[in-house]
Amino acid sequence: MPNTMTLPTSMIEPAAPKQRGYWGSVGNRLRYDPVTVFFGLVVLAIILAAVFAPLLAPFDPYKESIIGRLKPLGWKGHWLGTDELGRDILSRLIHGGRVSLLMGVVPVAIATLVGGTLGVVGGFGGRKVNTAIMRTMDVFYAFPSVLLAVAISGAMGGGATNGMIALSMVFTPAMCRVAETATAQVKNLDFVEAARATGAGTLTILRYHILGNVLGPVFIYASSLVSVGILLASGLSFLGLGVKPPTADWGLMLSTLRQSIYVNPVVCALPGAAILITSVSFNLLSDGIRSAMDVRM
């Protein structure tokens, strides 16, 4: 092909529109969304508190005290009071965030990886592959998620690891369905057909044209699952199927403190408040990100 071809100037486009790129406009939308920014900062604070727990906690979270049990807020430097064994609530909440966040994030990450992969394969593959994967997932889907989580960790025994495995199994089918739907939608778009017309193979098309367009919805869904993960994890611990005492964990704290609700109701409610604030913050953050990413330009 001769490389010297000059178009008449009348055929040359004079200028390109000056705009931000996709991520630029998503960032810009987020900047002007005070609610999302606020809850983003709350989530960041919770994460940082969990990471730097040993530095931030004013007391040893495991140090018990016979005389200082179930003391009210502000008692002897214990800002948030003490629990039924005299341990500092604030320190236990800060440390407990580590377990709760881990239980919320790790299963979602595993589910995203496993479910996402299965979903993309199911969505892009032929009808038989799709049927095999999606019907298997539907079996898991048929059980209510709490019941399934309780049943799985009940059968495998308690502990943080088993709890995470249980939650991963709960989240995987949902993740798979989201990825499958997104993939099937993208698969039928013209640019994928155009890529096939250039002679590209399946894997190349998956890598360059499908993944980039599927990751968005998958990540948005994953971020909304984190709050569910934290809630379910706390629920498992509350039922004694999650982490074991004396580990600091919000669900477990709620469970042990609940017997003391008539002695010091405010202190007993604190782990519940921590769960609530964290899960609401994650939820609103993921909501904000979703609406910011929903740019149809």
Binding site: A194, A195, T198, Y208, H209, G212
Partner: peptide, 23 residues
């Protein structure tokens, strides 16, 4: 030309380079 004729997550030069790259 439709909203779906080009990959929305790819700069257009990459969409064009895709064919030669595949080959």
């Amino acid at each position: 030309d439709s909203s779906s004729s080009l990959n929305p997550r790819m700069p257009v030069r990459d969409s064009i380079a895709f064919g030669p790259y595949v080959h």
